[in-house]
Write a protein that binds this DNA or RNA. Sequence first.
DNA 1: TATTGTTATACTCTATAACTATA
DNA 2: TATAGTTATAGAGTATAACAATA
Lengths: 173, 173
Amino acid sequence: MYDSTSTTALNPLDLESRVGPNDHQNLRLWLRLLSCSNFIENEIRSRLRTEFQTTPPRFDLMAQLHSSRGGLSMSELSKRMMVTNGNITGITDQLEKDGIVERIQLASDRRSSLIRLTTKGRRYYKRIANAHDVWINTLFTSLPEATHRSLLKHLNELKQVTRVFSSNSTEAH
Amino acid sequence: MYDSTSTTALNPLDLESRVGPNDHQNLRLWLRLLSCSNFIENEIRSRLRTEFQTTPPRFDLMAQLHSSRGGLSMSELSKRMMVTNGNITGITDQLEKDGIVERIQLASDRRSSLIRLTTKGRRYYKRIANAHDVWINTLFTSLPEATHRSLLKHLNELKQVTRVFSSNSTEAH
DNA sequence: TATTGTTATACTCTATAACTATA
DNA sequence: TATAGTTATAGAGTATAACAATA
């Protein structure tokens, strides 16, 4: 049974251990989601650090820039990464200092600038992204195809549902 | 419209936007999982802060203690929360200073101590946990029952799969 | 020798707000 | 007036390692 509250070798004590038999199914689902996500994120954080001396936020910023060849504004990065402008400035400063990204002044709006990967940055990003792909593929390798498809579909539903919720309560932070 | 570049209201640009058409399905699944989890976690972090002046790690520590009435050792907390002993010491210090937890010296092993919620701590925890339940229930409320069940089941599979992976490569950190 | 927990340190991320310069 | 981005600051989490006390 996938949902036993007792602990076996396959159900180690972790974040989810805090749910009791009377807890809501919603809480149970949330903790399970969180513990999956935290676990994988910790693995990745650790490898990014030891193998590439970088961090998830920096890697995410590079990935966002890589996926939009023309570059992105600070505000756009801020929205996508769901952190404040000030924090984007900080991460961008570090990456710029290392020659990985550059700020391009815009003639059209002189308040704004476009952030882009440099050539060096693009090479650096690709090396990390390749390793990252291997990590993820290894992690997910023995997940059955049907489970994979189901998760992809249903997590998308969850995403829609939570977005709607939040746009009602915490509009545009 | 919260977004410009070719995105519908139901698919806003976010972490997941960085996947391109050629990216692996595994990467796609991971980013979807991460963006669900981050989004909910951000909501909760924000509410814990503004409504209860606390943080997810502190709340998690309290929850772990609450679920095991007798209390837990620092090492046990460290394992469950997947952070180092030193960090558990820090969080415990803060909670102890606020009178929420207490350290109980053990006669059986004088190196170790048992961390327990105080009476005040238990009351405080219950207030937060109740609010937390409401938040989670609200977030998940319009998720169809079948989707819920499917996610619960398949996330458990994912959990097993990733655990196995990690115990091969990073035994007992 | 190994384990429990503490201390110290350096770094990063986060949140908030005041500020500038443009629009 | 509103927006883009910067600066400043305080606080928290994280990783690492050295350490003391005990097993």
